[in-house]
Design a binder for these strands. Structure first.
Lengths: 247, 247
DNA sequence: CGTGTGATTGATTAAAATCAAGTGATGTGG
DNA sequence: CCACATCACTTGATTTTAATCAATCACACG
């Protein structure tokens, strides 16, 4: 179904250096000093490009590396017996993929590019060893994992306490925040994921997602033009989604 | 509403030693050698007893320690504005509480004993420093955090893909597993949590939980006598809950 | 012995799933 | 280039599930 490639075969983007990377503030390198970043860089595999629909790793595959999104967008998902695939998360530039696999020795879900993306690869073994030497890196990894736990807990909360429309509102606000943090417009952006993927991620059906978007458009909280979203009423959306959005 | 105590005031249970602890296989000490356990022990505060309804820490309180359940059962929960409290998780002997607070400097939820419990306290700062010296401990902490992420993701999956009855079935099977792993009967056990807490945890209402239990009783998958559960048909319950239960 | 809490059961309602139909964009092959 | 298929999305009608509203029971506790 999906294209499957080995990481080695993809074209490496040359002259990449962590120190110059514009994602530093969002990345694992945040709060590391230049010398530490250089150490980290020594274990980073230069970012490679992944075309839309290409699978990075598959559930059950041997876990070896974590990946950091350099550009584009990756989804992790689980093929679930009877039901359709379930999207577990979307990853944006700076996000670290694979932390949930540390516990097992194999990947816990499948990662697929939903648009052309590039990623940096880090051997987890090397990262772990390095973190023993760099306390701030060790801390950073712990923090990232802890944050991931909190993120998942927030998701659980959303699923249990928000209705369809509130979930969509919260989702759009979180995407808006993600774009903002990465230096793009937070009022006008293009969703890289399909309605199906949004529905799966939010535990809804496509129809419900579509209807919720239509209604938010109708009450003029936002403009929906296919995957192009323009937010008109931030306070309204915030009030609707009530709970706190992604930090 | 709930009693609140400072950890210092509770009665310490004397002559406690990690090396002799019967929970070792389930605890953070798993796979540490005796010398390492001794090092760990030096930073462990002997277990203290917490009576039912007593709060261990409150959301927003300064994060300093993680806790390991020695006996009893602890719930973490979030008081949520308009709606009722939401139970985020139940913790059983061997479970580590507080990992989601590492990211912030304050606890992310509130921990309360739902039956008389005892806990070991570990300064996270000291644990972190110690983990720099003991690679297997560092690994263990990473694994625990990674597992927690997976657990939360499973929860998300359950909420999006299982109906009320399936969730209850899965919940009871997971409790059964927990008891089994701790050397108790997995076919007959007493739930320490109320129906309200189960409902909150599973994202359902009390009525729905009650009805689901009644129906499972009626079709003779199990016997429900107040909080006493006797499982009659494991295969049936497994089939019903379909997805994989807690490992 | 009343009061409150936890739990169960029933009736009704509301929300989202399901079923169904249709549009528009994209792509394929004749 | 057009006919046809397919996919992503939308909108409508109907059904299903669980929430809500309501009543009752059991039991623990002061």
């Amino acid at each position: 179904m999906n294209k499957k490639i080995s990481f080695q075969k993809v074209t490496p983007i040359l002259e990449h250096h962590c120190v110059n990377c514009n994602l530093n503030a969002l990345c694992i390198t945040d709060r590391l000093d230049p010398k530490e970043i250089q150490l980290l860089e020594s274990i980073v595999r230069h970012p490679s490009s992944l075309s839309k629909g290409t699978t990075l790793f598959t559930k059950g595959e041997r876990f070896q590396s974590v990946y950091i999104v350099k550009s584009g967008c990756i989804k992790t998902h689980i093929m679930d017996g009877k039901k359709m695939e379930k999207v577990t998360r979307f990853y944006f530039p700076g996000d670290l993929i694979g932390l949930n696999a540390v516990n097992y020795d194999y990947y816990y879900d499948t990662a697929t590019a939903i648009e052309t993306s590039s990623l940096c690869q880090l051997s987890f073994e090397k990262l772990d060893k390095l973190s023993a030497k760099i306390p701030s890196l060790r801390r950073k990894i712990l923090h990232l994992m802890s944050r991931t736990i909190c993120d998942e807990q927030k998701m659980v909360q959303q699923l249990t306490q928000k209705n369809a429309e509130e979930r969509i509102a919260a989702f759009l606000l979180s995407i808006s925040n993600i774009f903002k943090a990465r230096g793009f417009s937070d009022t006008r952006f293009r969703l890289s994921m399909s309605r199906i993927e949004i529905a799966s991620y939010l535990g809804l059906t496509v129809e419900t997602v579509s209807r919720a978007l239509s209604r938010l458009h109708k009450i003029e909280y936002l403009i929906v033009d296919k995957r192009e979203i323009t937010i008109l009423d931030f306070p309204g959306l915030h009030a609707l989604s009530s709970l706190n959005s992604r930090a």
